[in-house]
Simulated assay, not measured.
Amino acid sequence: MAEVRWVTFDCFGTLVDWRRGISGGLELLFPGRGWELLEIYIRVEAVVQAEQPSMRYRDVMAETVRRVADEAGLELVTDNASVLGATIAYWPVFADVGPALAGLRAAGWRLALLTNCDRDIIGETQRRLGVHIDAVVTSEHVGSYKPSHNHFTQFAESFGATRENWVHAAQSYFHDIQPAHSLGIPSVWVNRLGQADDPSIAHAVVPDLIDLVRTVERVSTG
């Protein structure tokens, strides 16, 4: 019987255009300021997650929006803090995702998501990926947010994944590539933003998912 082989993904940022989703939501509240406020949001959200690791992601987003508005000196209508939770199901999926995931399945890989969000959010997003996902580990389930190791250890314990049959692919160096390196999990850094962090801690670095099947196969046998 063939060994089960897994590719796990971060979802938002890797498969779904998280930056466009966040900036678009902030733009709805503060026209002309979306991309500028995104940079504050990215920094502040990590702080909120570290302070309150058991908080649901919808609430993390709302609290982050409140802090962003306060830091930027902008007036926020109370109900508007929920804008990201209300729009996240419609954030755009990157065009290379469907072919890459379908190619991995055709090559015999099982697919899983290790995601910093809630069960209901990933359920809404999952159906837009166009390919069956075999397993999901959420922050709501493990009670913490990456870069905590809990997503990875929970997945390994639940599905018997090891460094011999598992590759993790993700865009976020901070949330995914660094913890995967610490745990000895083979990783593919999907460096969509052309960041200059040390690439040597990943087993491969790619700019997108176009050649992901070949890259994963190379990493898994290397």
Rank of each mutant, 00 (worst) to 15 (best):
M1R: 10
R5S: 13
D10L: 03
F12Q: 03
F12T: 01
F12W: 03
F12G: 03
T14R: 10
T14V: 08
T14G: 14
V16P: 01
R19A: 15
R19G: 05
R20K: 05
G21C: 06
G21K: 05
I22R: 09
G24C: 08
G25R: 01
E27L: 06
L28E: 11
L29D: 01
P31Q: 10
P31K: 10
R33W: 12
E36H: 11
L37S: 03
L38S: 06
E39S: 14
Y41Q: 03
I42C: 05
R43H: 10
V44C: 00
V47K: 08
Q49W: 00
Q49M: 07
A50D: 07
A50F: 02
Q52C: 04
M55E: 05
M55L: 15
Y57W: 00
A62N: 05
T64E: 05
A69R: 02
A69T: 04
A69Q: 00
D70M: 04
E71A: 11
E71L: 14
L74Y: 04
E75M: 01
E75T: 08
V77Y: 01
D79R: 11
D79H: 11
N80L: 01
A81D: 11
S82L: 07
S82D: 12
V83I: 14
V83W: 00
L84R: 00
G85C: 07
T87V: 05
I88F: 05
I88T: 07
P92Q: 04
V93I: 15
F94S: 06
D96W: 13
G103A: 09
G103N: 05
L104F: 07
A107C: 04
L113G: 05
L114Q: 00
L114D: 00
T115S: 14
N116G: 02
C117T: 10
C117E: 04
D120P: 01
E124T: 09
R128Q: 14
L129P: 09
L129E: 10
H132R: 15
I133E: 11
D134G: 10
A135H: 08
S139T: 02
H141I: 05
H141D: 14
H141P: 01
G143E: 09
S144G: 09
S144V: 00
Y145I: 04
Y145K: 02
Y145T: 03
K146Q: 01
K146I: 00
H149F: 08
N150F: 00
F152N: 01
Q154C: 07
A156D: 03
E157G: 13
E157D: 15
S158A: 15
F159T: 08
F159A: 02
A161R: 08
T162E: 08
T162L: 09
V167N: 01
H168T: 02
Y173L: 13
F174P: 06
I177Y: 12
I177N: 13
Q178H: 10
P179E: 12
P179A: 13
A180E: 12
A180G: 10
A180L: 12
H181C: 06
S182M: 05
I185T: 11
N191L: 10
L193T: 15
G194T: 13
Q195V: 11
A196L: 08
A196H: 04
D197E: 15
P199V: 02
S200V: 09
I201E: 09
A202Y: 06
A202R: 07
H203K: 13
A204K: 03
A204S: 09
A204D: 03
V206I: 14
P207I: 04
I210H: 15
I210E: 15
I210A: 15
E217N: 06
R218K: 13
V219E: 07
